[in-house]
């Protein structure tokens, strides 16, 4: 039996990697992918605690979260396509019209 701490550590590392990517990358697609990594870090937590507490609801939530993430990616990519169409770029540094 692998102790729960290992899962949590993996999850934390994955989340940190995802957060770093989401904050630093200028390419919107890479940012979207980083967000997926963060979501999966959360899913690992769900599954780990589910098995730790012997409770199935964590796994249900993980499945649910995966489904939502899929929908989110669809929406995100749609926005990305529109962004490309209107401003001819997918560089996040260029998309700053809501500034002072």
């Amino acid at each position: 039996m692998i102790p729960i701490e290992y899962f949590l550590a993996l999850s934390a590392i994955l989340f940190a990697i995802g957060a770093y990517g989401a904050l630093t990358r200028r390419n919107t697609i890479v940012v979207l992918m980083s967000i997926e990594i963060m979501l999966n870090a959360a899913n690992i937590n769900f599954v780990a605690f589910s098995s730790f507490f012997n409770d199935a609801s964590g796994q249900v939530f993980a499945l649910f979260s995966i489904a939502v993430a899929a929908a989110e990616v669809a929406v995100g990519l749609a926005i990305l396509l529109n962004l490309l169409k209107t401003s001819d770029t997918i560089d996040l540094e260029e998309v700053n019209t809501l500034r002072w």
Partner: peptide, 11 residues
């Protein structure tokens, strides 16, 4: 000037 308009800096 803190309102840069960049989503990433807000995040």
């Amino acid at each position: 000037r803190m309102q840069t308009g960049r989503a990433q800096s807000y995040a």
